[in-house]
Design a protein around this nucleic acid. Structure first.
Lengths: 159, 159
DNA sequence: CTTATATTTGTAATCGATTACATAAAATAC
DNA sequence: GTATTTTATGTAATCGATTACAAATATAAG
Protein backbone atom coordinates (compact mmCIF):
# COMPACT_ATOMS: atom_id res chain seq x y z
CA UNK A 1 0.00 0.00 0.00
CA UNK A 2 1.63 3.17 -1.22
CA UNK A 3 -0.13 6.48 -0.78
CA UNK A 4 2.00 8.26 -3.37
CA UNK A 5 1.21 5.59 -5.93
CA UNK A 6 -2.50 6.04 -5.28
CA UNK A 7 -2.16 9.72 -6.16
CA UNK A 8 -1.05 8.81 -9.68
CA UNK A 9 0.16 11.95 -11.51
CA UNK A 10 0.24 13.99 -8.31
CA UNK A 11 2.70 11.64 -6.68
CA UNK A 12 4.90 10.91 -9.68
CA UNK A 13 7.47 13.63 -8.96
CA UNK A 14 8.01 12.43 -5.42
CA UNK A 15 8.20 8.81 -6.56
CA UNK A 16 10.85 9.61 -9.15
CA UNK A 17 12.82 11.45 -6.51
CA UNK A 18 12.47 8.49 -4.18
CA UNK A 19 13.79 6.14 -6.87
CA UNK A 20 16.61 8.50 -7.78
CA UNK A 21 17.72 8.96 -4.17
CA UNK A 22 17.65 5.26 -3.41
CA UNK A 23 19.58 4.50 -6.57
CA UNK A 24 22.31 7.01 -5.79
CA UNK A 25 22.53 5.72 -2.25
CA UNK A 26 22.61 2.07 -3.33
CA UNK A 27 25.32 2.87 -5.88
CA UNK A 28 27.55 4.10 -3.06
CA UNK A 29 26.86 0.96 -1.05
CA UNK A 30 27.68 -1.18 -4.09
CA UNK A 31 31.00 0.58 -4.59
CA UNK A 32 31.80 0.03 -0.93
CA UNK A 33 30.76 -3.59 -1.14
CA UNK A 34 32.92 -4.23 -4.22
CA UNK A 35 35.79 -2.37 -2.56
CA UNK A 36 36.17 -0.09 -5.55
CA UNK A 37 38.69 2.68 -4.84
CA UNK A 38 36.56 5.23 -6.70
CA UNK A 39 33.22 7.00 -6.30
CA UNK A 40 30.23 6.17 -8.53
CA UNK A 41 30.34 9.49 -10.38
CA UNK A 42 33.93 8.97 -11.44
CA UNK A 43 32.74 6.13 -13.65
CA UNK A 44 31.33 8.55 -16.21
CA UNK A 45 34.49 10.65 -16.21
CA UNK A 46 36.61 7.53 -16.73
CA UNK A 47 34.55 6.44 -19.72
CA UNK A 48 34.57 9.90 -21.25
CA UNK A 49 38.32 10.40 -20.88
CA UNK A 50 39.05 6.88 -22.10
CA UNK A 51 37.50 7.83 -25.43
CA UNK A 52 38.35 11.48 -25.68
CA UNK A 53 41.82 11.43 -24.10
CA UNK A 54 42.00 15.15 -23.33
CA UNK A 55 39.12 17.32 -22.19
CA UNK A 56 38.71 20.58 -20.35
CA UNK A 57 36.52 20.96 -17.25
CA UNK A 58 33.86 22.74 -19.28
CA UNK A 59 33.84 20.02 -21.93
CA UNK A 60 33.34 17.32 -19.29
CA UNK A 61 30.66 19.39 -17.63
CA UNK A 62 28.89 19.82 -20.98
CA UNK A 63 29.09 16.15 -21.91
CA UNK A 64 27.81 14.85 -18.57
CA UNK A 65 25.51 17.81 -17.95
CA UNK A 66 26.77 18.30 -14.44
CA UNK A 67 27.48 21.81 -13.18
CA UNK A 68 31.12 22.82 -13.56
CA UNK A 69 31.71 23.06 -9.78
CA UNK A 70 30.59 19.44 -9.53
CA UNK A 71 33.16 18.44 -12.17
CA UNK A 72 35.90 20.48 -10.51
CA UNK A 73 35.18 18.65 -7.30
CA UNK A 74 35.25 15.22 -8.95
CA UNK A 75 38.48 16.02 -10.81
CA UNK A 76 40.07 17.29 -7.62
CA UNK A 77 39.37 13.98 -5.91
CA UNK A 78 40.37 11.88 -8.91
CA UNK A 79 43.62 13.82 -9.06
CA UNK A 80 44.26 13.22 -5.37
CA UNK A 81 43.75 9.50 -6.02
CA UNK A 82 46.14 9.60 -8.95
CA UNK A 83 43.68 8.76 -11.72
CA UNK A 84 43.90 11.98 -13.71
CA UNK A 85 46.30 14.81 -14.31
CA UNK A 86 45.28 18.34 -15.10
CA UNK A 87 47.59 20.76 -16.84
CA UNK A 88 47.08 24.27 -18.08
CA UNK A 89 46.42 24.48 -21.81
CA UNK A 90 49.45 26.23 -23.40
CA UNK A 91 47.20 27.76 -26.06
CA UNK A 92 44.63 29.05 -23.58
CA UNK A 93 45.81 29.43 -20.05
CA UNK A 94 42.25 29.57 -18.71
CA UNK A 95 41.71 25.95 -19.60
CA UNK A 96 42.71 22.87 -17.67
CA UNK A 97 43.46 19.82 -19.79
CA UNK A 98 42.33 16.73 -17.94
CA UNK A 99 43.47 13.24 -18.91
CA UNK A 100 43.74 9.77 -17.45
CA UNK A 101 47.02 8.69 -15.87
CA UNK A 102 48.92 5.48 -16.59
CA UNK A 103 47.60 4.16 -13.27
CA UNK A 104 44.04 4.76 -14.42
CA UNK A 105 44.58 2.94 -17.75
CA UNK A 106 46.18 0.04 -15.95
CA UNK A 107 43.24 -0.31 -13.55
CA UNK A 108 40.56 0.16 -16.19
CA UNK A 109 40.16 -3.55 -17.07
CA UNK A 110 39.53 -4.44 -13.42
CA UNK A 111 37.11 -1.56 -13.01
CA UNK A 112 35.32 -2.53 -16.19
CA UNK A 113 34.82 -6.05 -14.91
CA UNK A 114 33.16 -4.66 -11.79
CA UNK A 115 31.12 -2.10 -13.72
CA UNK A 116 29.86 -4.96 -15.85
CA UNK A 117 28.32 -6.62 -12.78
CA UNK A 118 26.64 -3.38 -11.81
CA UNK A 119 25.37 -2.93 -15.35
CA UNK A 120 23.70 -6.33 -15.28
CA UNK A 121 22.05 -5.48 -11.95
CA UNK A 122 20.84 -2.14 -13.31
CA UNK A 123 19.50 -3.94 -16.38
CA UNK A 124 17.45 -6.23 -14.15
CA UNK A 125 15.75 -3.21 -12.58
CA UNK A 126 15.15 -1.16 -15.73
CA UNK A 127 13.83 -3.02 -18.74
CA UNK A 128 13.97 -1.82 -22.33
CA UNK A 129 10.46 -0.40 -22.32
CA UNK A 130 11.35 1.78 -19.37
CA UNK A 131 14.41 3.08 -21.20
CA UNK A 132 12.26 3.91 -24.19
CA UNK A 133 9.77 5.72 -22.00
CA UNK A 134 12.60 7.59 -20.34
CA UNK A 135 13.74 8.94 -23.69
CA UNK A 136 10.24 10.20 -24.35
CA UNK A 137 10.06 11.90 -20.97
CA UNK A 138 13.38 13.61 -21.63
CA UNK A 139 12.15 14.77 -25.01
CA UNK A 140 8.92 16.07 -23.50
CA UNK A 141 10.82 18.00 -20.84
CA UNK A 142 13.30 19.41 -23.34
CA UNK A 143 10.57 20.45 -25.72
CA UNK A 144 8.68 22.26 -23.00
CA UNK A 145 9.35 22.00 -19.29
CA UNK A 146 6.84 21.95 -16.46
CA UNK A 147 6.76 25.72 -16.02
CA UNK A 148 6.29 26.36 -19.76
CA UNK A 149 3.41 23.92 -19.80
CA UNK A 150 1.73 25.42 -16.74
CA UNK A 151 2.04 28.90 -18.27
CA UNK A 152 0.40 27.64 -21.44
CA UNK A 153 -2.42 25.91 -19.57
CA UNK A 154 -3.09 29.00 -17.50
CA UNK A 155 -3.17 31.17 -20.61
CA UNK A 156 -5.74 28.89 -22.26
CA UNK A 157 -8.00 28.93 -19.19
CA UNK A 158 -7.97 32.71 -19.11
CA UNK A 159 -9.04 33.07 -22.72
CA UNK B 1 23.47 14.51 -28.72
CA UNK B 2 23.51 13.23 -25.20
CA UNK B 3 26.51 11.28 -23.93
CA UNK B 4 24.62 9.79 -20.99
CA UNK B 5 21.91 8.52 -23.31
CA UNK B 6 24.53 6.85 -25.48
CA UNK B 7 25.74 4.90 -22.44
CA UNK B 8 22.33 3.25 -22.09
CA UNK B 9 22.18 1.29 -18.81
CA UNK B 10 25.36 2.90 -17.50
CA UNK B 11 23.89 6.37 -17.75
CA UNK B 12 20.39 5.62 -16.58
CA UNK B 13 20.98 6.45 -12.91
CA UNK B 14 22.40 9.86 -13.75
CA UNK B 15 19.60 10.53 -16.21
CA UNK B 16 16.94 9.72 -13.64
CA UNK B 17 18.65 12.02 -11.18
CA UNK B 18 18.79 14.73 -13.81
CA UNK B 19 15.04 14.38 -14.45
CA UNK B 20 14.25 14.28 -10.76
CA UNK B 21 16.32 17.38 -9.98
CA UNK B 22 14.87 19.38 -12.84
CA UNK B 23 11.36 18.36 -11.87
CA UNK B 24 11.80 19.41 -8.25
CA UNK B 25 13.34 22.69 -9.35
CA UNK B 26 10.63 23.37 -11.92
CA UNK B 27 7.96 22.61 -9.35
CA UNK B 28 9.31 25.42 -7.18
CA UNK B 29 9.33 27.78 -10.13
CA UNK B 30 5.73 26.83 -10.94
CA UNK B 31 4.63 27.54 -7.37
CA UNK B 32 6.34 30.92 -7.56
CA UNK B 33 4.80 31.65 -10.92
CA UNK B 34 1.29 30.78 -9.72
CA UNK B 35 1.90 32.82 -6.55
CA UNK B 36 0.93 29.89 -4.36
CA UNK B 37 1.58 30.67 -0.69
CA UNK B 38 2.81 27.13 -0.06
CA UNK B 39 5.76 24.92 -0.98
CA UNK B 40 5.41 21.99 -3.38
CA UNK B 41 5.90 19.35 -0.69
CA UNK B 42 3.07 20.70 1.38
CA UNK B 43 0.69 19.55 -1.33
CA UNK B 44 1.03 15.92 -0.25
CA UNK B 45 0.50 16.78 3.42
CA UNK B 46 -2.62 18.78 2.54
CA UNK B 47 -4.10 15.88 0.61
CA UNK B 48 -3.28 13.39 3.32
CA UNK B 49 -4.73 15.49 6.16
CA UNK B 50 -7.80 16.37 4.12
CA UNK B 51 -8.70 12.67 4.08
CA UNK B 52 -7.36 11.48 7.39
CA UNK B 53 -8.13 14.56 9.50
CA UNK B 54 -5.71 13.76 12.33
CA UNK B 55 -2.28 12.20 11.95
CA UNK B 56 0.91 12.05 13.96
CA UNK B 57 4.30 13.02 12.55
CA UNK B 58 5.29 9.37 12.28
CA UNK B 59 2.08 8.48 10.46
CA UNK B 60 2.63 11.23 7.88
CA UNK B 61 6.24 10.19 7.50
CA UNK B 62 5.17 6.59 6.94
CA UNK B 63 2.48 7.46 4.40
CA UNK B 64 4.66 9.78 2.31
CA UNK B 65 7.85 7.83 2.94
CA UNK B 66 9.81 10.91 3.85
CA UNK B 67 12.14 10.83 6.84
CA UNK B 68 10.55 12.11 10.02
CA UNK B 69 12.88 15.14 10.28
CA UNK B 70 11.67 16.16 6.81
CA UNK B 71 8.05 15.99 7.98
CA UNK B 72 8.82 17.88 11.19
CA UNK B 73 10.35 20.62 9.07
CA UNK B 74 7.37 20.78 6.70
CA UNK B 75 4.89 20.82 9.60
CA UNK B 76 6.86 23.55 11.34
CA UNK B 77 6.58 25.77 8.27
CA UNK B 78 2.94 24.90 7.61
CA UNK B 79 2.19 25.77 11.22
CA UNK B 80 3.99 29.11 10.89
CA UNK B 81 1.83 29.81 7.82
CA UNK B 82 -1.33 28.90 9.74
CA UNK B 83 -2.31 25.83 7.71
CA UNK B 84 -2.02 23.21 10.42
CA UNK B 85 -2.14 22.93 14.18
CA UNK B 86 -0.26 20.39 16.19
CA UNK B 87 -1.32 19.40 19.69
CA UNK B 88 0.01 16.83 22.08
CA UNK B 89 -2.01 13.62 22.10
CA UNK B 90 -3.67 13.36 25.55
CA UNK B 91 -3.45 9.57 25.41
CA UNK B 92 0.23 9.52 24.46
CA UNK B 93 2.16 12.64 25.25
CA UNK B 94 4.97 11.68 22.87
CA UNK B 95 2.70 12.14 19.88
CA UNK B 96 1.81 15.33 18.08
CA UNK B 97 -1.62 15.33 16.48
CA UNK B 98 -1.47 17.33 13.28
CA UNK B 99 -4.57 18.60 11.51
CA UNK B 100 -5.60 21.22 8.98
CA UNK B 101 -6.86 24.58 10.21
CA UNK B 102 -10.03 26.33 9.14
CA UNK B 103 -7.87 28.61 6.99
CA UNK B 104 -6.46 25.59 5.18
CA UNK B 105 -9.89 24.13 4.46
CA UNK B 106 -11.13 27.49 3.21
CA UNK B 107 -8.19 27.82 0.81
CA UNK B 108 -8.28 24.23 -0.40
CA UNK B 109 -10.65 24.83 -3.36
CA UNK B 110 -8.37 27.55 -4.73
CA UNK B 111 -5.29 25.42 -4.23
CA UNK B 112 -6.99 22.46 -5.88
CA UNK B 113 -7.76 24.56 -8.94
CA UNK B 114 -4.07 25.43 -9.26
CA UNK B 115 -2.93 21.88 -8.55
CA UNK B 116 -5.22 20.76 -11.34
CA UNK B 117 -3.28 22.87 -13.84
CA UNK B 118 -0.02 21.39 -12.63
CA UNK B 119 -1.46 17.90 -12.83
CA UNK B 120 -2.38 18.41 -16.48
CA UNK B 121 1.14 19.65 -17.22
CA UNK B 122 2.67 16.66 -15.42
CA UNK B 123 0.36 14.38 -17.40
CA UNK B 124 1.69 15.84 -20.64
CA UNK B 125 5.24 14.90 -19.65
CA UNK B 126 4.55 11.41 -18.26
CA UNK B 127 2.23 9.22 -20.27
CA UNK B 128 0.42 6.13 -19.00
CA UNK B 129 3.03 3.70 -20.27
CA UNK B 130 5.69 5.51 -18.28
CA UNK B 131 3.58 5.28 -15.15
CA UNK B 132 3.16 1.55 -15.71
CA UNK B 133 6.89 1.12 -16.19
CA UNK B 134 7.53 3.14 -13.06
CA UNK B 135 5.42 0.73 -11.02
CA UNK B 136 7.50 -2.14 -12.36
CA UNK B 137 10.75 -0.40 -11.48
CA UNK B 138 9.49 0.22 -7.96
CA UNK B 139 8.52 -3.43 -7.63
CA UNK B 140 11.89 -4.55 -8.93
CA UNK B 141 13.71 -2.32 -6.47
CA UNK B 142 11.51 -3.43 -3.57
CA UNK B 143 11.93 -7.07 -4.40
CA UNK B 144 15.70 -6.77 -4.55
CA UNK B 145 17.66 -3.55 -4.59
CA UNK B 146 20.82 -2.77 -6.53
CA UNK B 147 23.17 -3.98 -3.81
CA UNK B 148 21.30 -7.26 -3.34
CA UNK B 149 21.46 -7.88 -7.07
CA UNK B 150 25.17 -7.11 -7.31
CA UNK B 151 25.87 -9.45 -4.40
CA UNK B 152 23.94 -12.19 -6.16
CA UNK B 153 25.73 -11.63 -9.48
CA UNK B 154 29.12 -11.68 -7.80
CA UNK B 155 28.26 -14.91 -5.99
CA UNK B 156 27.28 -16.58 -9.26
CA UNK B 157 30.50 -15.53 -10.98
CA UNK B 158 32.58 -16.98 -8.18
CA UNK B 159 30.94 -20.40 -8.33
C1' DC C 1 7.02 -2.33 40.99
C1' DT C 2 11.16 -1.78 38.74
C1' DT C 3 14.07 -2.32 34.89
C1' DA C 4 14.87 -2.84 30.09
C1' DT C 5 13.29 -1.99 25.51
C1' DA C 6 10.81 0.33 21.86
C1' DT C 7 8.59 4.35 20.02
C1' DT C 8 7.96 9.30 19.07
C1' DT C 9 9.56 13.68 18.44
C1' DG C 10 13.12 16.89 18.07
C1' DT C 11 17.96 18.75 16.88
C1' DA C 12 22.65 18.65 14.88
C1' DA C 13 25.82 17.23 11.58
C1' DT C 14 26.41 15.73 7.04
C1' DC C 15 25.97 15.16 2.04
C1' DG C 16 26.04 15.86 -2.89
C1' DA C 17 24.76 18.77 -5.66
C1' DT C 18 23.33 23.57 -7.17
C1' DT C 19 23.34 28.83 -7.81
C1' DA C 20 25.80 33.01 -7.02
C1' DC C 21 29.93 35.32 -6.93
C1' DA C 22 34.94 36.30 -8.08
C1' DT C 23 39.02 36.29 -10.95
C1' DA C 24 41.82 35.75 -14.86
C1' DA C 25 42.39 35.23 -19.70
C1' DA C 26 40.84 35.39 -24.42
C1' DA C 27 38.00 37.23 -28.11
C1' DT C 28 35.65 41.05 -29.99
C1' DA C 29 34.61 45.89 -30.92
C1' DC C 30 35.85 50.25 -31.80
C1' DG D 1 45.96 49.09 -29.27
C1' DT D 2 42.68 49.92 -25.77
C1' DA D 3 38.14 48.93 -23.78
C1' DT D 4 34.35 45.84 -23.52
C1' DT D 5 32.34 41.41 -23.50
C1' DT D 6 32.56 36.52 -23.22
C1' DT D 7 34.50 32.32 -21.56
C1' DA D 8 36.90 29.12 -18.18
C1' DT D 9 37.95 27.97 -13.75
C1' DG D 10 37.63 28.23 -8.92
C1' DT D 11 35.36 29.28 -4.26
C1' DA D 12 31.55 30.31 -1.03
C1' DA D 13 26.96 30.13 0.31
C1' DT D 14 22.86 27.66 -0.04
C1' DC D 15 19.45 23.94 -0.36
C1' DG D 16 16.52 20.01 0.63
C1' DA D 17 16.91 16.11 2.15
C1' DT D 18 19.21 12.32 4.91
C1' DT D 19 21.59 9.78 8.88
C1' DA D 20 23.12 10.10 13.57
C1' DC D 21 22.28 11.47 18.00
C1' DA D 22 19.45 12.91 22.16
C1' DA D 23 15.52 13.14 25.31
C1' DA D 24 11.04 11.93 26.90
C1' DT D 25 7.39 8.72 27.27
C1' DA D 26 5.08 4.35 26.74
C1' DT D 27 5.25 -0.64 26.66
C1' DA D 28 6.97 -5.15 27.90
C1' DA D 29 9.53 -8.27 30.83
C1' DG D 30 10.88 -10.11 35.03
Amino acid sequence: MDYLKSLQLIGVTARIKRISDKLMHDARRVYDYLDLPIEPNWHLVFLLLKEEKQLSVTEISGALKFSHPAIINIIKKMKASGYVTSTTDPKDSRKQIVQLTEKARKELPNLEAEWDKIKIAVGAIFNDEFLEQLVEVEENMTESDLLDRVIEIKAKRNE
